[in-house]
Write a protein that binds this DNA or RNA. Structure first.
Length: 685
DNA sequence: GCGATCAGGT
DNA sequence: CACACCTGATCGC
């Protein structure tokens, strides 16, 4: 759950994914995707009023997000004030203070985030440097390297700060099976069931959230069966999704919902109410997508788990795993990294406590934990992450040493030449040590690391069962949001062994509803264990579903082939980066005038300017003139005092960015490396 | 009646 | 484990 408060240190006049409190003063709004926890305040009266008074304030998002948002009547009032920006199209946006008339420009580039339809990351380039706000994301290893617009001159851009989805930034969630593995497992299960008879149906027990469309479209594509859903009007302009959905209850795959769905299911009733087809009772199984994760020790990645006679859980994640985050971060090498999610193991209370106590981070000194030790899988501490430094694999860029405050939700990075000081003064921990410490931590394990996923490079034995349907990544059409922009399939899908699919003898008699627990119960176990999978019994409370005694029906390939092939493919696929600047660095410029006069059109009028190289005037961001700072602050004050819109003045309301900016600017001005503390999101609640 | 918040559920 | 919700109760306006 995002705890990002909306503002970034470098560009405090814009707000992202938060629309309440201080964000009511923003000069521009950005929405990374259409999940409610990123839309706080978006339909509140306060913001509505602001909008009515401040005619130059707009919400920027991807075309798909705009479409999804405006489908809901509750957000319809935004219609004239949303400007969609095409993916991977650097676009200049004016940030105007309407009280003073002061204006600055910022260039934003939307990068696909792989979290849900329309989800993007925002790359901002402006006078205070380049920053990346990831929103929520699921990116496989190596995907950052394939994002052309993260690069410049053949290397990764200098990113001052990253605002990062840290949902699974915990070594317990070291690995999550890839999208392809999960899809493949689910596909196998669904196929094996629905091919038995027209009366065998599957209920996909999905939560109310965007993000499962990837699953729906792929199942439908592979099986030629549309998915029954309650609503599909939000996809009316997204044919690549729409075509795979139906409101016809006669289909064999359902993803419909009902408040009493679980109860219904006990009685062999689908959420949409049907139990029969042509007078013949249905045979139903449920598949509940859940995030399954695996610590580094866990070798098997079982993507389907049977939880009851007719119930299954299937691995599915909208968020990147620890190792994926690690890969992403170590590739980007930002100077600062801020978590958007309160680190796991830190409760809200703890956070509140800490933040009220002191902004001084609690940390363990570095250099103490070099020794290998048995990891505490259940440990809430992340201390063992932050061991002594070891070399990091370099990639495109001389790495900074990333540092992390695990308990203060401020990850910072420091330049390599002065780690000592900073360590002393801030107690930062190096993010790069995550990977090293993990190796260290696991070295004692009984299982040999030589068999761990990371180290084995077993060639993929690809079965073509699933078929190499590749959706080419293409630019979204101006008018019709394109699904494939956000998710693309890879060719190297591995199919699962389908031998232990539900047997017909286990088929629940549709007329004899089962009366025992069938819903995710830990107590129901069906004996179809695969010996190679059941040998590893982990202690209670260990990570991963496979550690439980649930019957594992399907397992992915033993080794993490996906990552390797992905990387290789990425390398091949990645275009010649030296060509990027010319072709890709064109910017769209949203001229205020144009935008203004074009409010009625569906899309903003954008003018493309010829390549002028880096669109960042002060891309280094190392030196911020003093006047900028004071200007910034004074205009904020102005906008408060002489405001013609009803923004309550909040004199003591932390304005954390001010102090932080001050510090930041000072450090920048002196050329020192930067360590920024971010206040707890719940500080002023 | 609405919104915000919390508890509890999946 | 945790996600991204949903529902219902309570409170304040």
């Amino acid at each position: 759950m995002s705890s990002f408060q909306g503002q970034m240190a470098e560009y405090p006049t814009i707000s992202i994914d938060r629309f309440d409190r201080e964000n009511l003063r923003a000069r521009a709004y950005f929405l990374s995707h259409c999940h409610k926890d990123h839309m706080k305040g978006l339909r509140a009266p306060a913001l509505k009023r602001r909008l009515e008074c401040s005619l130059k304030v707009y919400l920027y998002c991807s075309p798909v997000t705009k479409e999804l948002l405006l489908t809901s009547p509750k957000y319809r009032f935004w219609e004239k004030r949303i400007i969609s920006i095409e993916i991977e199209t650097p676009t200049q946006i004016p940030l105007v203070d309407e009280a003073s008339g002061e204006k600055e420009e910022i260039v934003v580039t939307l990068l696909p985030a792989g979290h849900c339809p329309g989800s993007v990351m925002f790359l901002f380039q402006g006078s205070n440097g380049t920053v990346l706000y990831t929103g929520d994301f699921r990116l496989a290893k190596g995907e950052a390297a394939r994002m052309e617009l993260l690069h410049s001159g053949g290397r990764v851009k200098d990113i001052q700060s990253i605002y990062l989805d840290t949902t699974f930034c915990d070594p317990r969630f070291y690995q999550i099976p890839s999208r392809e593995e999960c899809l493949s497992g689910i596909l196998g299960l669904v196929r094996s069931w629905i091919t038995r008879s027209p009366y065998h149906v599957v209920w996909l027990n999905c939560k109310a959230a965007y993000g499962y469309e990837y699953l729906f479209t792929n199942l439908s594509e592979e099986l030629g069966v549309q998915i029954h859903v309650d609503k599909l009007d939000m996809f009316r302009n997204m044919p690549d999704i729409l075509h795979h959905l139906t409101t016809d209850r006669g289909t064999q795959i359902h993803a419909c919902r009902h408040p009493k769905a679980e109860e219904y299911f006990q009685w062999n009733k689908l959420p949409c109410g049907i139990t029969f087809k042509n007078g013949i009772p249905l045979h139903t199984i449920s598949i509940k997508p859940s995030t399954m994760w695996f610590g580094e020790r866990t070798r098997k990645t079982n993507v389907i788990v049977r939880t009851g006679e007719s119930s299954y859980r299937a691995c599915f994640s909208f968020h990147s795993s620890y190792s994926e985050i690690k890969d992403f971060l170590s590739y980007i090498c930002p100077v600062n990294a801020y978590p958007n999610v309160i680190p796991l193991g830190t409760t809200v209370d703890k956070v509140r406590e800490m933040s009220s106590q002191s902004i001084q981070p609690k940390y363990k000194p570095l250099g103490k934990l070099k020794r290998a030790r048995t990891i505490q899988v259940d440990s809430e501490e992340e201390d063992e992450l932050f061991d002594d430094p070891l070399p990091v694999p370099l990639r495109h860029k001389v790495p900074y040493q990333l540092t992390l405050h695990p308990e203060v939700f401020s990850m910072t990075a420091i330049s390599q030449n002065q780690p000592e000081e900073l360590r002393k003064s801030t107690g930062c921990f190096k993010t790069e040590n995550i990977q090293n410490s993990l190796l260290t931590n696991f070295i004692d394990c009984e299982e040999s690391n030589s068999e761990s996923e990371e180290e084995s490079e077993i060639p993929s034995s690809v079965q073509e069962d699933v078929g190499p349907v590749t959706l080419p990544q293409q630019k979204a059409d101006v008018d019709v949001p394109q699904w494939e922009v956000f998710f693309k399939r890879k060719d190297d899908i591995t199919d699962e062994g389908l031998e232990n699919l539900p047997s017909s003898t286990e088929t629940r008699g549709s007329q004899s509803p089962k009366l025992f627990s069938d819903s995710d119960g830990e107590s129901t176990h069906i004996s179809s264990q695969n010996s190679s999978q059941s040998t590893h019994i982990t202690e209670q409370g260990s990570q991963g579903w496979d550690s439980q005694s649930d019957t594992v029906l399907l397992s992915s390939q033993e080794k993490n082939i996906g990552d390797i092939t992905t990387l290789n493919k990425g390398a091949y696929r990645s275009k010649d980066k030296e060509n990027i600047p010319t072709s890709q660095m064109e910017q769209n410029v949203l001229c205020p005038k144009d935008t203004y006069s074009d409010l009625k059109s569906r899309d903003p009028e954008v003018t493309t300017t010829p390549n002028v190289g880096e669109p960042t005037p002060l891309s280094g961001g190392k030196h911020i003139p003093e006047k900028n700072r004071s200007l910034n602050l004074s205009t904020q004050a102005d906008s408060q005092s002489s405001s013609d819109f009803e923004i309550p003045s909040t004199p003591e309301a932390e304005l954390p960015k001010r102090e932080h900016l001050h510090y930041l600017y000072e450090k920048m001005a002196t050329g020192e490396s930067i360590v920024v503390e971010r206040k707890c999101s719940l500080l002023d609640i």
